[in-house]
Design a protein around this nucleic acid. Structure first.
Lengths: 253, 253
DNA sequence: CGAATTAATTCATCCGATCTATATGCCGTA
DNA sequence: TACGGCATATAGATCGGATGAATTAATTCG
């Protein structure tokens, strides 16, 4: 086994065994390298790899730390990976969303605290009857995020959140071309929330299914029409993103 | 932005834009370093990070290559991450499985080719009526994997597969303590397969739900009993695992 | 007391030498 | 010609030290 791979494993084990806890600081590079019996260069490769998947966080001039290991944080890696599958398999990921989001909505109807429901209601109310496409998308993303969190299952919420990433471009495209989609989205959001508020899981599930399926169907049709391609939305990632994974910043949604 | 992070991004972009395709070989370390304008050491950190998440594969003495980028391969990263959440949130991941696997079973009932169904049948038949715990677990893993693949959705299959990883230890524990679990598992597997063969998606979904819920309930009970802890199953990963992520080898399931 | 400067700590980057694994072509043998 | 083993080229693996940059803390000065 390569020394670097072994270092990755050793550090991982230090976390699993509890020797290193979330937020803990790792020994200095030279010290840890000595302890693991390898050179700084090799250790740095291991640390960089673990930083990419958000297990470690390096702060220049300060030190290297174990992250919170929050599922949501760890799942960000999935978004990075999903970026590699932009064109072809978007529909496959969409189908997974169509499975997970209704389930999350149903669970939210059972478990979501009243206070969080109120927050969700406020989010919808703050959006005017005819919002801009940008505002709608921002609200949409936040709505689904809170809905997923409301399921009370962090792992479920994280996966849903990650799956949303690779499809948001398609949704932007939809917002730009289909004007009645705005009103429809708003109405469906309210229907889902009403069901949750009324503690009716099956109604929430159904509305969520309708909501996701609507977008999915539209994308499906668009894909089937030959020559129809989403407009290029490529951005220079290097300049904007301070994160290692260089993900899209929230403001872009 | 750190030069290494920029290198990660540049390589990612080279893949996204199609300049590098799956299976392609990257330029030699010195050449690529020169092209990206950084040192070999820094480039190596970037390559190591991308190798950890299975985007690149390095073969000493041969070269560095883009992997197949198969969703299943990419999702392996999730398993690595999930290993960090062994104790507390296993049940959360289990709940996601309880959502996804029945959905996959239902879809398999609609889409799975007859030939694949026959293969699944053969898998179950080859297992004797009273198999060893090891054989049962191996068969179980393969059964669920084929079932997920049978859904016809690679993304769904990959996620299910990844989620299975962090729970297999719990299942091993179950197999060792509950003897009737063997017969029950076999019967449930057959029931699921019968439903798929009969092209009855809702029946398949229900049996899959029962199957997963059974294990989940058992784990739930075990967790609730104070002082009951799974036996240590720690292994020396360094010696056994040739993969970068040092995951469990199939034979251990 | 507060602000600015300085110093110490820590990671970031680079360099180039040496080691190791792999692939491939050459060569001898059958 | 066919096969097997050896030599060599290639490419990644590892190392250790020098230098730069960012952050934090201590110190000094107004």
């Amino acid at each position: 086994m390569r020394v670097t791979d072994e270092a990755i494993d050793r550090i991982k084990q230090m976390i699993v065994t509890g020797e290193l806890r979330p937020g803990d600081r790792l020994p200095r590079e030279p010290d840890l390298a000595a302890r693991l019996g390898l050179s700084r260069s090799s250790l740095r490769e291991a640390v960089k790899a673990l930083a990419l998947i958000r297990v470690l966080e390096v702060r220049q001039g300060d030190g290297t730390f174990v992250t919170s290991l929050d599922p949501a944080l760890l799942m960000e890696t999935m978004g990075f990976v999903l970026d590699l599958h932009q064109d072809a398999s978007v529909l496959e990921f969409f189908e997974v969303r169509r499975i997970l989001e209704p389930a999350a909505a149903a669970r939210a109807a059972l478990r979501m605290p009243d206070a969080d429901i109120a927050m969700l209601r406020k989010l919808l109310d703050e959006l005017g009857p005819e919002p801009s496409v940008e505002d709608l998308l921002a609200s949409d993303v936040e709505f689904h995020r809170l809905l997923a969190v409301g399921s009370g299952n962090r792992a479920l919420a994280s996966i849903i959140d990650s799956l949303r990433q690779p499809t948001y471009r398609a949704r932007i495209w939809r917002g730009l071309t289909q004007n009645d989609a705005v009103a429809q989205t708003l109405a469906e959001h309210r229907a889902i929330l009403d069901a949750i508020e009324g503690r009716e899981p099956e109604v929430a599930r159904s509305w969520a299914t309708v909501h996701i399926a609507g977008v999915e169907r539209w994308i499906q049709d668009a894909v089937n029409l030959d020559g129809v391609e989403p407009p290029p939305t490529r951005r220079k990632a290097s300049a904007k993103s301070p994160r290692v994974l260089s993900r899209s910043t929230p403001v872009e949604y």
